[in-house]
């Protein structure tokens, strides 16, 4: 059968492949497919840090839930500071994907459409005269990426020396097309969410960066545009 192709022993190759691909008698079961969801746990098991002791105090889901519930008290304040744009809830499709990441035991989520990218956190050069949550500037391919100490920005009231020492930032989560990046310790996973799975804040309150609460995971969903706006103004998470 050789036709002078690429193989020196063309016939041998043909025999080998013919044998492997011989259909033979059908012996397979025809049972219906079992349910994938039951067979495979959907949640990725989150690696535990090797060296970091549990940080006290950590932000608890209760803290986040309370922050979200405070909305009605806060929503009248500082409206003038908010970004005049469609709310995140309006912008997103009914189903959207979000990246979950960890900072000091706190899980945050950003919708993928507002994720600018992820960088390995490298050398950060501090700048003088900036807020304490401003880690500094990381140079990446001639681009200056502005790094935010996320734990300090999100929960300044819980930011102790001990917490600071325990932080092990690994990545920079870039916000939209901006130069701002949130330092994070661990990437968890990317999940498809339905809008119904989020307890949305009904109006922008004191923390416009907090779009809502992902109910199932009890974690904060970040409104990236609002957060960029606050960072540009040099505001901390509670400064409005």
């Amino acid at each position: 059968m050789s036709k002078g192709g690429a193989f020196a022993k063309e016939g041998l190759m043909e025999d080998y492949l013919s044998s492997l691909l011989d259909e033979g008698p059908e012996t397979l079961e025809k049972d219906p497919v079992a349910k994938l969801i039951e067979s495979v746990p959907l949640q990725v098991e989150i690696e535990q840090p090797d060296v970091i002791e549990p940080v006290q105090p950590q932000v608890t889901t209760k803290d986040i839930a309370e922050a979200v519930d405070k909305v009605n008290e806060e929503q009248q304040a500082a409206e003038a500071h908010h970004v005049a744009s469609a709310s995140l809830q309006e912008t997103l499709d009914d189903e959207f994907q979000a990246l979950f990441f960890d900072v000091a035991g706190l899980t945050l989520a950003v919708p993928l459409i507002t994720l600018g990218g992820i960088h390995n956190l490298e050398k950060v050069n501090p700048l003088i005269g900036k807020p304490d949550w401003f880690m500094g500037v990381m140079i990446h391919r001639d681009e200056k990426l502005t790094s935010v100490d996320t734990a300090r920005w999100v929960m300044p009231e819980k930011y102790t020396e001990k917490l600071a020492e325990s932080l092990n930032y690994q990545y920079l989560i870039m916000l939209g097309n901006s130069a701002w990046g949130l330092a994070c310790e661990k990437l968890i996973n990317t999940v498809v969410l339905n809008k119904d799975e989020v307890k949305w804040r009904e109006a922008h309150g004191k923390r416009p960066w907090l779009a809502g609460l992902v109910k199932d995971k009890m974690c904060a969903l970040v409104d990236v545009d609002q957060m960029i706006s606050m960072l540009e103004q040099g505001l901390g998470s509670n400064d409005l």
Binding site: L28, E29, A34, L36, S39, V40, L42, I188, N189, T190
Partner: peptide
Amino acid sequence: DKLNADVVLDCLCPSRLDSLF
């Protein structure tokens, strides 16, 4: 010995993307 759905599904690992195995 005998193929069925469980043979395949039991071997799957999840990823960081929830629809990717």
